[in-house]
């Protein structure tokens, strides 16, 4: 573990990524205290104000403070990312381990389900699920969670197959340890590294997907300060003020970029063999 941390620390970009993620997490959890204004408060006298000392990121077409909305937006992005990836990791992990460990028809069935889910472009699948469930933050979490389930499923399945015939699993079987116990105690810890890396990268996907769905009007509630909704509204007003469409986009990019470099850094730190191949 120390060795992984040591290797990770040498990757400066990944460390910066981790710092930015921590910053977003602090903003998300302390939004109530950190945000200078109420993100929902509309004021006629501050419509489309330039960025300045009163409004650091300017104000939007309803006079709402953009900085405050970006800060509250991080709450939506972080929570959607966390829950959606949690759903995908949990359901994909269980299905994948079951398929890989049991093999036979269970594997056949689960793998076919994954194949079918993979044959839809992810944004289309998410859109269709949102069309069924209706726009809300909870539903966005569920939709993105379902869409990313097969990614975790495939990784878990592949890794479970690799450890299925390992000597320690054979030994555990021979002394009568039950299947569920073997999966939880022996298979799961051994397939953790690829799942951890995928979890980090999936956070980036989930934040992007939430913003995209909200941008299309099929994401979180229409009045919520989601970065995607801010962008969607901002694009109609940017002829009058560039800032309405620029700052939410910077927030999305920064969050996604941070998770991507963190994921890359973790991959290099956890699997030193890869560094050589990746150059």
């Amino acid at each position: 573990m120390n060795e992984i941390w040591h290797r990770f620390r040498q990757n400066r970009l990944a460390v910066i990524g981790l710092a930015v993620i921590l910053l977003f997490t602090v903003l998300a959890s302390g939004a109530t205290w950190i945000a200078p204004y109420d993100p929902y408060e509309m004021r006629v006298d501050t419509v489309l104000h330039h960025p300045g000392s009163a409004h650091l990121f300017g104000s939007d077409q309803f006079g709402r403070d953009i900085l405050s909305r970006v800060i509250y937006g991080s709450r939506i992005s972080v929570s959607v990312g966390f829950i959606a990836v949690g759903i995908a990791l949990f359901s994909g992990g269980i299905m994948g381990i079951m398929a890989g460990y049991h093999g036979k028809w269970i594997d056949g069935l689960i793998s076919r389900i994954f194949d079918i889910m993979f044959s839809f472009p992810d944004i289309l699948l998410a859109l269709v699920i949102m069309a069924i469930l209706g726009p809300s933050t909870t539903n966005v979490m569920i939709a993105i969670g379902i869409v990313y389930t097969p990614i975790f499923g495939r990784i878990a399945r592949g890794s479970a197959i690799a450890v299925r015939n390992a000597a320690y699993v054979e030994t555990a079987k021979s002394i009568g340890v039950g299947n569920t116990m073997i999966m939880l105690r022996h298979v799961l810890p051994n397939i953790a590294p690829p799942l951890i890396i995928q979890t980090t990268l999936s956070f980036a996907f989930a934040i992007l997907a939430e913003a995209a769905l909200s941008f299309l009007g099929l994401g979180v509630e229409p009045d919520a300060p989601s970065w995607g909704i801010m962008l969607n509204e901002g694009k109609d007003w940017m002829a009058h003020g560039w800032w309405v469409a620029v700052f939410p986009g910077i927030a999305i990019t920064l969050a996604v970029l941070s998770f991507n470099v963190l994921g890359d850094g973790l991959r290099d730190a956890m699997d030193p063999k890869l560094i050589k191949n990746r150059g």
Binding site: W242, I252, T253, V256
Partner: peptide, 13 residues
């Protein structure tokens, strides 16, 4: 990392 819909908006701008 840049969302396509934002990049598009920036290009329009």
């Amino acid at each position: 990392s840049v969302p396509g819909f934002w990049l598009g908006v920036l290009f329009i701008l």
